[in-house]
Write a protein that binds this DNA or RNA. Sequence first.
DNA 1: TGTACATCAGTGAACGCGCGTTCACTGATGTAC
DNA 2: TGTACATCAGTGAACGCGCGTTCACTGATGTAC
Lengths: 219, 219
Amino acid sequence: MSEHDDAGRGDESADGRESRGQRTRLALQNAALRLLEGDKSFSSLSLREVAREAGVVPTAFYRHFADMKELGLTLVDETMHTLRDALQAARAQSRENTLGDAVASLARQVQTQHLHFCFIARELYGGRSAMRQAIRHEIDLFVRELALDLSRHKETENWSAEDLQMMASMLINILIATAEQMLEAPTRRPQAENAVIETAEKQLRLIALAAPHWKSAGR
Amino acid sequence: MSEHDDAGRGDESADGRESRGQRTRLALQNAALRLLEGDKSFSSLSLREVAREAGVVPTAFYRHFADMKELGLTLVDETMHTLRDALQAARAQSRENTLGDAVASLARQVQTQHLHFCFIARELYGGRSAMRQAIRHEIDLFVRELALDLSRHKETENWSAEDLQMMASMLINILIATAEQMLEAPTRRPQAENAVIETAEKQLRLIALAAPHWKSAGR
DNA sequence: TGTACATCAGTGAACGCGCGTTCACTGATGTAC
DNA sequence: TGTACATCAGTGAACGCGCGTTCACTGATGTAC
């Protein structure tokens, strides 16, 4: 044990290639995501099913995760990190350009990160409590970030913190609902997809219209 | 066989009390809803589990449903019928009174129809494809009904059919998201519930604010 | 560079369990006379 | 009202299956000298 702390090695990933262990771990994660692409939800996925899809024997699973629940929470973590980057890109778009560009950017993300969005959308509502709460928490972070963004816009600069939060959560709701609808009609035709995108754009535009009139009406 | 069509009897429920068969059938349905109240989703529910909760032997299940899928679709049908009535009541409220009353009415419905809302919210996103599509279809009907309602309001009377649809689906989205959030924090405290309701109210009010300005801006 | 050894990722047999579904059955409910 | 019979909801034993998890193992990867 005492001979282990002589050098600053420690981190195995610095060694160039990813180790054999890491490869199987990733294979398990990707196998689970692949299996979730279709009809199934994570809670109806079996350990043996995932191992089979990953091309390893069931017992190998335990070298990497204590149980399916741990795999699930790992997937939430990694996936939400990916989505956070995606939404950050979309937010950057909307700051510099039009709302339409922001929606188009989101649509592109949904297409390229298809597996990740499938997983999150299913588990946000359908999953077990632990996973649902983990996702909710990440979404709350999104909402807070977006609220901060909004506070720097001229139309909403002197809104109360509460109202900014309300506005942000409504916008995120629209994004979630839109992503869901895009996932629902994948194989049919791109025409349906465009209709969904167009509707989302209109909804965002309508809300943008209301912003300058808020507080002046109301109570 | 020929002696069966002599009288106009036929319908067994006209006999006063519900028959023994109907009682067990309802027991199975309610058992499933009860089991879904917690963490689980319908697809992770087993036939034996439902029979056990209903107090019958597993094989008795087959007297009433071909399999779990049939039970699921039956539950969707019945539950959506219940919810349709609930939303119709909420719509009537909003026509005659304020938006706040409409939201309060929805909140009351969520509390009294708690089990039904739990079931639908879970299965809308987390369920198997057949069930998800059945629910989506019913929600589409809600949206269409609401769009028709909107077309009779003065602020939106000369909007295009497309725009009415867009508006209606946004309103329904808010209702769904609000119901979901109310289900999420049930045991904690009523304070959280009130915050959710207040937010929903504000969101609806904000959209109402935008309505008169639509089309005058836009492209 | 080459050999000896330690570590650890992946193997395969085995277990007990709850599952969906079948079958022949029992006994209660409803009907005909 | 009373008896004989048909219908049909619910029973209980049995089946084969995939599951999660255990265990002792093998053999590849990495380390020390």
